[in-house]
Design a binder for these strands. Structure first.
Length: 566
RNA sequence: CGGGGCGUAGCUCAGCUUGGUAGAGCGCUUGCUUCGGGAGCAAGAGGUCGCAGGUUCGAAUCCUGUCGCCCCGACCA
């Protein structure tokens, strides 16, 4: 491709409304342009990258035995009402009415559509297993679109849905997809990690996420330093601590007139934060309140709390007035003493002896408190987010917290959708069988942003070779002045093109500075400079994007091709 | 949705407090010079100051409303 014939729109200045580096670079390098909040046009250069990711995904899905389909982005609301998700999914579901006032949704995923197809056309166990996928624009009425295409209202997603006669076959396909995903992200060329996940509103039993590791990631992951254990912090279990030490201290009140948080109290008393206990008062399932006790240095894991049988889901914090009525003290001075409301204690809080907590009296805390003596022996549960330094749940190593960008998610759904939508097949004995389902997603457009997030330097993008928009950029110096340069560059361009190398030829006649700056910014992996200097000794200059130094190579097409693969 | 901020040239922004004929840098066009890491000189194009009302002799500037965008919190590929 000749750049003079192309639509390359780069900018030197960083657009004001771009926060993360991938968004900035995608705008500066002319990959995308914003149409509205969370809506982006893919320009020619960006679309080439998107297509490359898409192609890798398609090839590996095909290789794994899945079959490509294409379903309508519009879905009649009845299908979503049938699965129950029309009401459950919430405001994030993009809905509209047509001229006849019929309800539709713009699909954020397509379990319903595919299950509907399956119940019509999949009649026999002989047709199973079946794994159908598509690569298509998905829609979400995001609360807050941000970070460019990373969290957009529209995005390109690969979604796959599989059907099986039993759970064992579902598990087999799940592993198959897991391996396919591993190959996909390896081929794309990003550093990633597979983590245990919560299945969220999609539902189902087992699920794992694929994360590209990057500091700008929106998700916190807990990873072991000694094994391959890794989990989204939402889903990471915490290990139960050892047995509780014996009580040694007397329980006594201490004045804490203005100290409401555990941090403030611990500082005032000069005790470690880990010896304090805080109460979080929430609505109980079936009415009333329940208090969740956590160690002062630990954070509540909302998803874990919502799964607890005593806690109402979605989690709702009690109001100040209710708390005062139940405890006789305002928030900030609450403790598990005095049987005010039922207490569920996180295992780590339950394992403390001689701890500090609120005295249920404004302006006072209580120290030397012990379960079973000063406070009723609590019900224990895993309620907290794991913290860096915790032992890994698999017993090997220590957890540390890192950030990741979720680019893939695989689920074993079970029969949630097939049951709700009455999809069934006849088994060998002629009896009805409700298939087990799996679903598998990849955020294709998000992968592009995630790759940039991981692969960039001060000058711009440094594309992994597999998804670079072009493989080589050809930069002639003084092409308009030197017949030798023009001749050599034109020939090299023609020969590389003929050899099937994706080459971008900068024939715009720019000065070297801007030309190199653009080449760096758009991140083409290999750069060949053709100039009078080198040609004088029969050489081209070769530089790998991201390499410190350029080197000279013989000025022949064969040597250039050899350098590309070196 | 709640909290905070911003809408002035293609981009980054000044001007607004104290109303008086719309600015800079970068980018773009043309010419000459220059040509190995974002050149110099000269000439030029480009803005209903987000939109709608209001106050005023006069509004980018003051007032009201409205729309859009960005950032912080609850969601997800």
């Amino acid at each position: 491709m000749r750049l003079s014939q192309y639509f390359l729109v780069t900018t030197k200045e960083t657009p004001a409304d771009a926060e993360v580096v991938s968004h900035q670079l995608m705008l500066r390098a002319g990959l995308i342009r914003k149409l509205g909040a969370g809506l982006y046009t893919w320009l020619p250069l960006g679309l080439r990258v998107l297509r490359k990711v898409e192609t890798i995904v398609r090839e590996e899905m095909d290789r794994a035995g899945a079959l490509e389909v294409l379903v309508p982005p519009q879905v009649p609301a009845e299908l979503w009402q049938e699965s129950g998700r029309f009401d459950q999914y919430g405001p994030e579901l993009l809905r509209f009415k047509d001229r006849h006032q019929r309800d539709f949704v713009l699909g954020p995923t397509h379990e319903e559509t595919i299950t509907d197809m399956a119940r019509r056309d999949v009649r026999s166990y002989r047709q199973l297993p079946l794994n159908l996928y598509q690569i298509q624009t998905k829609f979400r009425d995001e609360i807050r679109p941000r970070f460019g295409v990373m969290r957009a209202r529209e995005f390109l997603m690969k979604d796959a849905y599989s059907f099986h006669v039993d759970a064992a076959d579902l598990a087999r396909e799940y592993r198959n997809m897991r391996e396919a995903y591993r190959r996909i992200f390896t081929r794309v060329g990003v550093r990633f990690r597979i983590v245990k996940a919560d299945s969220g509103p999609i539902g189902g039993d087992r699920s794992e996420e694929f994360h590209v590791l990057a500091n700008s990631g929106e998700d916190l992951l807990a990873v072991s330093d000694a094994s391959d254990y890794a989990a989204n912090i939402e889903a990471a279990e915490s290990l139960r601590p050892g047995p509780r030490p014996a009580a040694a201290a007397q329980s006594e009140p201490v004045a804490t007139p203005t100290q409401k948080t555990c941090e403030e109290v611990a500082a005032l008393l000069g005790v470690p934060l880990q010896t304090t206990v805080k109460l979080i008062v929430v609505r109980a399932r079936g009415g009333g309140l329940v208090a969740l006790a956590l160690r002062g240095d630990h954070a509540l894991n909302v998803l874990k709390a919502e799964k607890h049988p005593r806690v109402a889901a979605p989690l709702e914090l009690a109001g100040d007035a209710e708390i005062e009525a139940a405890f006789g003290a305002p928030p900030g001075f609450l403790g598990p003493i005095g049987d005010k409301v039922p207490v569920v204690a996180d295992h780590a809080a339950a394992a403390l002896a001689d701890f500090v907590c609120g005295a249920n009296r404004a302006g006072y805390h209580q120290r030397g408190v012990n379960w079973g003596r000063d406070a009723r022996e609590p019900e224990g549960a895993d309620l907290r987010c794991v913290a860096g330094g915790d032992p890994s749940p698999d017993g090997q190593g220590t957890l540390s917290l890192v950030r990741g960008i979720e680019v893939g998610h695989i689920f074993q759904l079970g029969r949630k959708y097939s049951e709700a939508m009455h999809a069934s097949v006849l088994d060998e004995s002629g009896k009805e069988l409700t298939p087990e389902m799996g679903c598998y997603g990849i955020g294709v457009s998000r992968v592009v942003a995630a790759a940039i997030e991981q692969c960039n330097d001060a000058a711009g993008i440094v594309w992994p070779e597999a998804i670079a928009p072009f493989r080589v950029i050809l930069c002639p110096i003084g092409r308009d002045k030197s017949a030798a340069v023009k001749q050599a560059a034109d020939t090299l361009y023609a020969e590389l093109s003929a050899a099937g190398v994706e080459v971008l030829y900068d024939d715009r006649g720019l000065r070297p500075g801007p030309m190199f700056a653009d080449a760096d910014l758009i991140g083409i992996p290999h750069r060949i400079v053709v100039g009078d200097k080198g040609l004088g000794s029969g050489q081209f200059e070769y530089k790998r994007r991201g390499a410190a130094e350029a080197r000279m190579i013989p000025a022949t097409t064969a040597d250039v091709i050899a350098a590309l693969s070196a």
